[in-house]
Design a protein around this nucleic acid. Structure first.
Lengths: 184, 184
DNA sequence: GTCTATAATTTGATAGAC
DNA sequence: GTCTATCAAATTATAGAC
């Protein structure tokens, strides 16, 4: 059973998304899981290993939830609405930031491998959005990548603003605007 | 002479903007300034005091550089261009994120007072943008606050993406788009 | 796989001399 | 204002028993 391993990742993800990679300790994780710190190190030799595993799992899940980006034929609005929904879940269901917004913000103080996997999250998300927009709005195909970067940046920033100001309407306002822009 | 005090703030700001509030220590600061950790605590009794002072100074300087938001009569493009320039300086001149993007990302793991001052940065920036947009585009006055939140969110996110991906063109792309949107 | 025990280092902070 | 000296606690692990 890899139950404890998954529990360690669950708790670590929640802690990173709340306080950052430098804001949690293996002891915090151990306490929350109900084991000792030494046992955490059995599953993940170093803290960086935890960071990498959390980020890989987060990225895979995030993109799996988005589905096939090529399915939005002539429907950019649906694509962007779905994408905004994915970020809304981070805020509303979890009450937390996107993992990679947090890691990206402290990227200079991260173990190299964790920074690398943070970058991969962004690259894969920009590519997903670019494809979804290219499939759905033929006329603006050339601008699809610029649109993708804009949408991702605005949503990551909107989560930071919403949580800092403790005001979910900031996110909703930005999300609405992005969906509206997708139609023109 | 408050030279050392300012030096401590300079170094602390740079360290926070690179590694986050939990990613630097008073010893790091002392070494960079060329004094001992105990001397840092003479100027700032606690680490939270450093965080508050850094954030207050950063916010005041940022808004001072922006100038009077009411001066953009019928010229939303100039207002947004100037605002984008302010964020570009963080990236190009300093090679770093906005201080409050970093602090906002780890807000759950911050001393309360530091989180409060992070919030103030966002509130003051949204208000500056709202006024600048209201002054410059009468027809869209009702949407000025929504526009303000969108612009701030997109720029904070664009800095995170640009630095994580080590690609300044991400920021430039988003900035260009925001300036373009200001004209419609 | 989990534990106890422990090590080496770092951290935030204080006391008191100069 | 800055230093030396010191501290208690926290942090990231490792060794080895069970």
């Amino acid at each position: 059973m890899s139950g404890k391993r998954e529990e360690i990742l669950d708790v670590s993800e929640a802690l990173i998304r709340t306080s950052g990679f430098n804001g949690f300790s293996t002891r915090d994780v151990a306490d929350a899981v109900g084991i000792k710190a030494a046992s955490v190190h059995y599953h993940f030799p170093t803290k960086a290993d935890i960071g990498v595993a959390v980020t890989e799992r987060y990225t895979d899940r995030f993109l799996e939830a988005l589905g096939d980006p090529d399915r939005f034929v002539k429907d950019a609005r649906s694509a962007v609405t779905l994408y905004v929904d994915a970020f809304r879940r981070a805020l509303v269901r979890d009450g937390k930031l996107c993992l990679c917004a947090v890691l990206g913000a402290e990227i200079g103080g991260l173990p190299t491998e964790v920074g690398q996997h943070t970058r991969i999250f962004f690259e894969r998300n920009i590519e997903w959005l670019r494809r979804a927009l290219a499939a759905s709005s033929g006329a603006r195909a050339a601008r699809a990548k610029a649109d993708a970067m804009h949408i991702l940046a605005a949503l990551e920033g909107a989560l930071i603003l919403s949580l800092s100001l403790d005001d979910r309407s900031v996110f909703e306002s930005v999300g609405k605007r992005l969906i509206g822009l997708a139609e023109h």
